[in-house]
Amino acid sequence: MTQVLAISFSLNGKTIAVDVPAHVLLIDLIRDRLGLRGTKRSCDMEVCGACTVLLDGEPISSCTTLAVDVDRRAVTTIEGVTPPDGLSRIQEAFVLHGGLQCGFCTPGFIMAVTALLETTPHPTDAEIRHYLDGNLCRCTGYTKIFEAVKSLARRQDAA
């Protein structure tokens, strides 16, 4: 029997109130009900990172999170970190360093890097590699993505 629960949460800074069946996953709520398609489903088992969103600022896999679990919490998706008139500095760095080709893994990477730089504005090389270890890319390769993130750490150092 399907049980429907009323939840209320912040989505990219806006308060959302919806009724969701208890077994519905966060990724389906975000993409299908709320129409934010930037978050991608790929492995569907918390390994690839394509579906990464931030829950209270920390990266989680939206493919394996119950929608009811974000009740009274704050969810940030790729749409929430993209300025209306262009790109964020993280997205710009990915473009400048050629850190994307097909772009399917990119939203997940951007969300992970957003969380990393929020808590660690000047990550070491090892910290970047360790944090992004769970985001998979199957066409660009990791060197350019790593260099994009490294450029942000450096730029902040110089500032």
Binding site: Y131, D133, G134
Partner: peptide
């Protein structure tokens, strides 16, 4: 614990 699975799994 800092090396279990990946950052998303470790968070929850």
């Amino acid at each position: 614990c800092a090396e279990v699975a990946n950052i998303r799994v470790r968070n929850v």
